[in-house]
Nucleic acid binder design. Structure first.
Lengths: 205, 205
DNA sequence: TTTCTGAACGTTCAACAAATCGTTCAATCT
DNA sequence: AGATTGAACGATTTGTTGAACGTTCAGAAA
């Protein structure tokens, strides 16, 4: 089993190099197999198909991303407002730099998104979990409160969706995007605080 | 001149029928010309090209849409909150029904959006003007206040961008989309009211 | 037996040819 | 003259063919 995992890792490494150098489409299974000194057919004992190799690569990167996000929402000295800002700014910069630094990686992400629509939803759900944690923590500290944290997290993701999709950016620079994200977040978070006020008023009555 | 406008109208009508029946791509200039009992070449005395005919059709529809939106934001008996809700719900339903009722029309919109990127921005800017009017009116009535109404309008459009792009809907039904839009708007508008409070507090100090 | 290979299968892709389309403009009509 | 035509032009699309690709599996290797 450990043996099998090591081979999987080797395949992932070889594929990652090829994909980010030549792109997903221009990389053949035969090439990846040759890089691993094995036959094309043998790859299929370790992965159901080419797309699954890409998914494994993406999942590892996603795990790294989640780790970074987790660090941000657990910053001890920061307010809930600042943590939310840090969270979504990290999301934006992550997407932006992926596009800027290496378009091949973004090609890979696009292929996965179009061939495995549910995969994007899974990633969004993972990030949403972190948001819920953040909201729970903010409530514990009495900062803001929301009735349905799962739903509120969905609303934040919905309202910041534009910043996930470079196709919607129409050549905006990162500073402009950041200014826009900042404005949206300010409104949303002020909304959260306001709902806390309503909630308290309701309790008092 | 009036003569020329009448012919333009005839061309637009013929093209509209063809585009919505067979689609933009499958309609040829020769067919539109034949429908108008003229030669293909003659079309170019009235329109610079095929895409401009589509744009004229889209612009007329856009004018209708703006008229509807204007009606909603000027409803006398409604609060700013309700007007904002009506505004964006109309936007969502407009997009949704365009897609649902006649995909050919949506195809036309997609072609224009991809060939004339600035055209989409122009439509967004028109709608943003109405939002600014709405904000000015709400401020006049003392309901909520925002420092930079142009910017605030941009933030509202940014946060509701998802509802403009069916590609991001992943099979969500209209009721689900409406629920989501409702949640986003609730946060945003609460945010507006909260900023008014901050503003007033600032004035008082 | 279990692990691995590489030829074989059906599908997808790339390159080329033919046809079609948007657009132009010299010639024709009014 | 100005208005209109329709053949001609270049660009784009369509159709087709052969190679390349992802995937499978019967058999070889271990």
């Amino acid at each position: 089993m450990a043996e099998k995992d090591a081979v999987r890792e080797q395949i992932i490494d070889a594929a990652k190099k090829r994909f980010s150098h030549f792109g997903y489409a221009k990389t053949t299974m035969a090439e990846v197999a040759a890089d691993c000194s094995m036959s094309p057919g043998n790859l299929y004992r370790f992965f159901p198909g080419k797309l699954d190799i890409a998914e494994a690569i993406a999942s590892a990167a996603h795990e790294e991303h989640l780790k970074e996000l987790r660090k941000l929402i657990q910053a001890p000295a920061k307010s809930g407002r600042d943590r939310l800002r840090d969270f979504f700014f990290e999301e934006l910069r992550h997407t932006y730099h992926m596009l800027e630094k290496n378009p091949r990686i973004h090609e890979m992400a696009s292929v996965i998104a179009s061939e495995r629509p549910q995969y994007s939803n899974w990633m969004l759900a993972n990030e949403r979990e972190l948001l819920v944690e953040l909201f729970e923590d903010a409530e514990r500290r009495g900062e803001f409160r929301s009735h349905d944290k799962q739903f509120t997290a969905e609303m934040f993701q919905s309202a910041t969706m534009k910043f996930h999709y470079p196709q919607l950016w129409s050549k905006l620079t990162l500073p402009k995007l950041e200014r826009e994200l900042d404005g949206v977040l300010k409104l949303l978070i002020d909304g959260l605080y306001a709902q806390k006020a309503h909630h308290n008023a309701g309790q008092a009555a």
